[in-house]
């Protein structure tokens, strides 16, 4: 076994502080050069251990950690600011669409009024049995029946005689004021927006 063949094994054993292998144990007593190399490598490993210990507890001072965390917070704030800066555009667009749809569904006239809240519309749970002449409502003939639990909406709005006639409601007062004369009426609308009943305001006796 030549020195060259054992060189790497020798260095590795010394570096790791491992026990000599059989062939190294057999070779070292007969080879001064390898023995010296073995001793030098072992001494080097020993010194490496001391050098390692010298810096074992070393680390950056704590203010570096705080500085990094502060920088992170600052970057996060900037990221969120940037996010909000761009996010308000789609949010505003969505809001605009929602308001537009709501306005459109509320009816183009915009002059609706609820029975108990004249300033706006009122949604009420209203069974089909309540839409009766006893309650002052004139049912619209031939209107599709309300489904069980279907909610209806009462809107106060102006209707004219021709419109009432179109619904199939005969107004006995005649057409003295002309077919376009307006009446204020509470109109019961189903979820399909079709009128189900009408109550003429100020014509309770009717």
């Amino acid at each position: 076994m030549s020195c060259r063949e054992l060189e790497k094994e020798l260095a590795e054993s010394a570096r790791l502080g491992a026990a000599l292998s059989g062939r190294l144990s057999a070779h070292l007593p007969d080879c001064r050069q390898c023995r010296e190399r073995w001793e030098a490598e072992r001494a080097l490993s020993e010194e490496m251990g001391k050098l390692r210990l010298a810096v074992a507890g070393e680390r950056s001072p704590d203010w570096r950690r705080r500085q990094l965390m502060a920088e992170f917070s600052s970057l996060e704030r900037a990221r969120l600011r940037s996010w909000f800066r761009w996010a308000w555009i789609p949010a505003a667009a969505a809001l605009l669409v929602a308001v537009s749809v709501q306005t459109w569904r509320g009816g183009p006239s915009g002059n609706v009024a609820g029975q108990s809240a004249p300033a706006g519309e009122e949604f009420v749970e209203f069974g089909s049995g309540d839409i009766s002449e006893e309650n002052g409502f004139i049912p619209v003939p031939y209107a599709p029946p309300l489904a069980t639990g279907e909610s209806v909406r009462i809107v106060r709005r102006a209707v004219n005689r021709a419109e009432l006639a179109g619904m199939g409601i005969d107004f006995p007062g005649g057409y003295a004021d002309g077919p376009d004369a307006d009446f204020e009426a509470d109109v019961v609308l189903g979820e399909d927006e079709l009128p189900r009943a009408v109550q003429l305001v100020g014509y309770a006796e009717y």
Partner: peptide, 8 residues
């Protein structure tokens, strides 16, 4: 001082 002689 890391000569083999000194180590020895």
């Amino acid at each position: 001082g890391m000569s083999p002689e000194r180590i020895a």
